[in-house]
């Protein structure tokens, strides 16, 4: 029953979808305020990239090719570990970005009739903010898939250019910890968590994630506490939801 409804809606919405330049421009325009915030956070990324001893090219490539803020900050926090934790960085990046799977899945009803190259180019630029704005535009009647591309692309320009500026300006910031800048990661993630708070149902899984992470950080080497805490907390949350 549920499935039949979904596929009906699928056909209905995807038939009417377009992908135009004006749609992309509208998406970009609506995203300007978020692009300004993204620019400022990108500056912080560039400054911290320098602190973590990333070369200019590495900082540019990471922002330009990965383009996923939270996972890039996590990667920086792992970057100076010895020996260099390549596997942990890539695995953690995957775990932190797994939320994109759900976002991409939600595009299916809207994008299924578009040419694959348009879809698979657009999703390269998809971040939480552009996806959320696009879904809200579609909910209000928007039917131009270019919106997602335009919104993601303006955020991309802001993110990459600010990383370059931050990495360069960082030359004059000798010791970020002295100014509390090492706390910027924690503060950003804390603020993002406030936005993710849905109510009491978050309490148990988040407490489990916190306890497992603190214990793992104490007993295990490196930064594996992120994976262990994240997996423990999310499994408890899923079981909790099923009840």
């Amino acid at each position: 029953m549920q499935k039949a409804n979904v596929s009906e809606r699928d056909n209905f919405t995807s038939e009417k979808m377009t992908f135009t330049l004006s749609g992309a421009l509208l998406g970009a325009k609506r995203t300007i305020p978020l692009a300004i915030s993204g620019f400022a956070i990108g500056i912080v990324f560039g400054v911290l990239a320098r602190q973590a001893k990333l070369s200019f090219i590495d900082a540019l490539l990471m922002s330009g090719l990965v383009y996923a803020g939270a996972s890039q900050f996590v990667a920086l926090s792992l970057w100076t570990a010895i020996p260099f934790p390549m596997t942990a960085i890539i695995l953690t990046t995957f775990i932190v970005n797994m939320r994109h799977l759900l976002m991409g899945a939600s595009l299916r009803p809207w994008f299924s009739k578009l040419s694959p190259w348009k879809v698979y180019t657009s999703v390269f630029f998809m971040v939480d903010e552009s996806w959320a704005l696009t879904m809200s535009d579609f909910a209000k009647g928007g039917r131009d898939a270019g919106f997602l591309f335009g919104s993601g692309f303006i955020l991309y320009i802001a993110w990459v250019s600010s990383a370059v500026i931050g990495r360069t300006v960082g030359a004059w910031i000798q010791n970020p910890a002295q100014w509390g800048l090492d706390f910027a990661f924690t503060a950003v993630f804390t603020a993002l968590l406030v936005g993710m708070w849905k109510g009491k149902s978050n309490l148990l899984p988040w407490a489990v994630a916190a306890i497992v992470a603190v214990a793992a950080a104490h007993w295990l080497p490196g930064k594996w506490y992120i994976l262990l805490g994240g997996i423990a907390g999310s499994i408890v949350g899923a079981i909790n939801d099923a009840k």
């Binding site: 968590l193 994630a209 506490y225 992120i226 262990l228 994240g230």
Partner: peptide, 9 residues
């Protein structure tokens, strides 16, 4: 949410 909590905890 769980991953972000684990990072900052």
């Amino acid at each position: 949410g769980a991953v972000l909590v684990a990072i900052i905890a």
